[in-house]
Write a protein that binds this DNA or RNA. Structure first.
Length: 333
DNA sequence: AAATGTGGCAACCGCCTGCTA
DNA sequence: TTAGCAGGCGGTTGCCACATT
């Protein structure tokens, strides 16, 4: 036989909690700890379901909860984490001390998601919504090869292969958390590379760095999804592929994965790099990098604008960022 | 000043997983 | 082994406050 029922739902109160109920719950937990949620309401003198008590405590009454507006760093973290973890609100909340999954979920749905949509970014894939603007076909066009114009010849980055090899070397560790960790490590490394550059570097070079980093995240995420798909194929290993190496051999990629990465690296970066208003105005890149709270020069750091107005409009300069007003495209044609 | 619209958020619902008897 | 519950989680709802007409 299983356990006895959690609680008799008949006659239990629902809806908003009163201050009296809150006090009862707080006082009881302060004395006895959260413990068994099933028996807690009765012992605390509450006409509530244990589940309701747990929710009230974890989402609102817990003393370590941070109230108030999300800081900019928190918002940036949420977007970054969401790009890797998806709607795993509890996993995201675990990385944001003092914030609950419910709070983060609400904030995402009411603020971030709407803003991304308004700016033409798919909040699920974190890529530009190509149904609104087919940037990839535009950029792949032989007549209008913006990547070539910007000198983006180095899209195949060895660090991506290093990451992929690490992931392949340990299938059990190929979790979103590991991916995020590797991504952050890569980010830091590229940040230091970026910061070591001398002041004579042109803005386009910074843009190039940004786009490479952005494409890295895109490909890391895509690669992880790809790897999951492979693992779902019965009896599939890279050993099935002629000329490929074993998954157990670090630093060597299977043919399929390598091809996948090569192909995906050839795609233009479909990400927020196109929307970086920072580069279009007074070039806040340097100040951005000097800010210790914004060490990650990353895909989502395009939101790293200090004011709400700038954040609201960070993507409205969609094409301005890439194309200086003084640039005459007829000269390139 | 009243009616209506909109956004934010606390709370609920229902499903899933792991545990227990 | 298995039925059934607790706890956890993500999605959704509904209330309230504020803005707009």
């Amino acid at each position: 036989m299983g356990r006895s029922p959690c609680c008799d739902k008949n006659g239990l109160k629902k809806g908003p909690w009163t201050p009296e109920e809150d006090n009862k719950l707080i006082q009881y937990i302060q004395l006895h700890g959260p413990g068994n949620w099933r028996t807690l309401p009765k012992n605390a003198g509450l006409q509530r379901c244990g589940k309701s008590c747990r929710l009230r405590w974890t989402n609102y009454l817990r003393p370590d909860i941070k109230r108030g507006r999300f800081s900019f760093d928190e918002e940036e973290s949420i977007i970054q984490l969401h790009s890797v973890l998806g709607n795993k609100w509890s996993a995201i909340a675990a990385r944001l001390p003092g914030r609950t999954d419910n709070e983060i979920k609400n904030y995402w749905n009411t603020h971030i998601r709407k803003r991304l949509l308004r700016n033409g970014i798919d909040p699920v894939t974190h890529s530009p919504r190509l149904d609104l603007l087919d940037l990839s076909s535009l950029l792949n066009s032989t007549q209008f090869n913006l990547s070539s114009l910007l000198g983006l010849q180095a899209l195949v980055n060895p660090e991506v292969f290093r990451l992929a090899a690490t992931l392949l070397a340990s299938q059990n560790e190929s979790t979103p958390e590991l991916l995020l960790q590797k991504y952050q490590e890569n980010n830091q490394m590229f940040n230091s590379q970026l910061q070591n550059q001398e002041g004579s570097e042109l803005l386009l070079q910074k843009l190039q760095q940004n786009q490479i980093l952005n494409s890295q995240l895109q490909n890391q995420t895509q690669f992880f999804q790809f790897q999951n798909q492979i693992q779902e194929i019965p009896n599939f290993t890279t050993q099935n592929v002629p000329g490929s190496s074993s998954l157990s051999q670090p630093m060597q990629l299977g043919h399929v994965e390598e091809s996948y990465l090569m192909n995906s690296q050839m795609l233009p970066p479909q990400n927020y790099g196109y929307c970086n208003s920072d580069a279009s105005d007074n070039s806040n890149f340097q100040s951005l990098n000097n800010n210790s709270s914004n060490q990650n020069f990353s895909l989502d750091s395009v939101l790293s604008t200090p004011t709400e107005d700038e954040k609201e409009s960070y993507c409205s300069n969609l094409m301005k960022f890439e194309i200086p007003e003084s640039l005459n495209f007829d000269d390139f044609m």
